[in-house]
Design a protein around this nucleic acid. Structure first.
Lengths: 220, 220
DNA sequence: GCTTTATTAATGACTGGTCGGTAAGTTACG
DNA sequence: CGTAACTTACCGACCAGTCATTAATAAAGC
């Protein structure tokens, strides 16, 4: 956990407060999840008292919602950029992977992931926000890139929906392993850029076109 | 949540109690995670009162540990069987996948997965038990099957460790999506056997040997 | 300038509800 | 009765959320 920055107490710049609180909250939520995070810890990390948080956010859930929302919005914006950047599917997909991987490695993702895996049923509105605004949007993006690549013969033909799912699958798990690499020796010494490269190579290999004359003996 | 089976209250068969409690606990832990699970809910589901649980398990953590341990032991045992069953790598790997997928779809897995993702730091001993006894053991198994397949020319050459990781990655994420399919429309209508087939096909495609004369233009 | 009053930012002691854990009590059976 | 199996009522710790109070500053009056 990073150190509190204690500034003089009467700063007269309350406009900064929400951002400071959100930053601290992200760190604590990322570390402990929603239920286990204590408001007092967030306050301490932001150099404030618990009561102050309630001047800016109505409830703990509200704070959490806002943390996630701001972070995800940032990601979506970045994603849209990649979409329009490159016409070549392989290049745009590579760029997408890099951006995605960057986001996954930020502390927002574990928080988000925990939410999705454990605390979704307590936040139905956030859940649907997440599925439509993040998952489906991202999946559609990837799917379209893959489809273009298939049309161009750069990828083998398969259900692009499924391929997109496989891609996310690889990234999501590896990101979680990355975030817990002190517990998983298997990942510990592998650099994060190496991990990305491994995923990329593996995925492109899975998508490489069938050689026209190769025997596909094994696959029933 | 499944319905309580209320039997006559004085059964005089206390030997059954631990198993009943463990069963109920698994269900509740799987649904809510460790921290959010209430002993009283477990008790009610087992048709008992909270106090009774403490006649058989010292603490909540203890109960959780035992739930995980018994379930994992069952899985390990099954895994060992697959290992020795088949000499042909593709077949044994297929069998392994089927067994793995079966376990992943059981309610133990989400509980385990949540533990690993969110509550590990509270259970250092369970964490190390899990990494050495489950992850590493399973990874070694898969790695060996893959190595044999590479030697036989059935798979392309690559770091088998990495390939094993990719395989787990695909399975783990898909399993979690499967368990939450009511939230994820993308998965909702896909049968679980279809999901397995998709993963299998994708993985085998990623591992298929390079065609000797195919141009590998795209991959720098 | 100096004092008084008003306003704003922030605090921390307190409340109320929840739940893990315990101990006294209850029921059935030999 | 005695004892095994289980229940019920309770305790205490914890923590989200509240609110009376304090500290800093600005504005007004002289």
């Amino acid at each position: 956990m990073s150190e509190t920055i204690v500034e003089p107490r009467w700063r007269r710049i309350p406009e900064e407060r929400p951002r400071q609180i959100l930053e601290a909250a992200l760190e604590v939520f990322a570390e402990r999840g929603l239920a286990a995070a204590r408001l007092e810890d967030i306050a301490k990390l932001a150099g404030l008292s618990k009561g102050t948080i309630y001047l800016y956010f109505a409830t703990k859930e509200d704070l959490f919602r806002e943390v996630i929302r701001t972070s995800v919005v940032a990601f979506i914006a970045r994603a849209e950029a990649f979409f329009e950047a490159e016409p070549d599917p392989v290049h745009s997909l590579t760029a997408w992977m890099e951006g995605y991987w960057g986001w996954l490695r930020s502390p927002v993702f574990p928080a988000m992931h925990r939410l999705v895996n454990t605390e979704l049923r307590s936040f139905p509105d956030l859940a649907s926000f997440y599925t439509t605004e993040v998952i489906e949007r991202a999946q559609r993006l990837v799917r379209e890139m893959l489809e273009r690549g298939m049309d161009a013969g750069q990828f083998r033909r398969m259900d692009p929906q499924v391929a997109a799912r496989m891609l996310s699958s690889l990234f999501v798990t590896h990101a979680m392993w990355y975030h817990q690499r002190d517990c998983f020796k298997a990942i510990k010494d592998v650099g994060d850029d190496v991990l990305l490269a491994q995923i990329r190579e593996f995925f492109f290999n899975a998508m490489r076109p069938e050689a026209p004359n190769a025997p596909n003996s094994r696959l029933k």
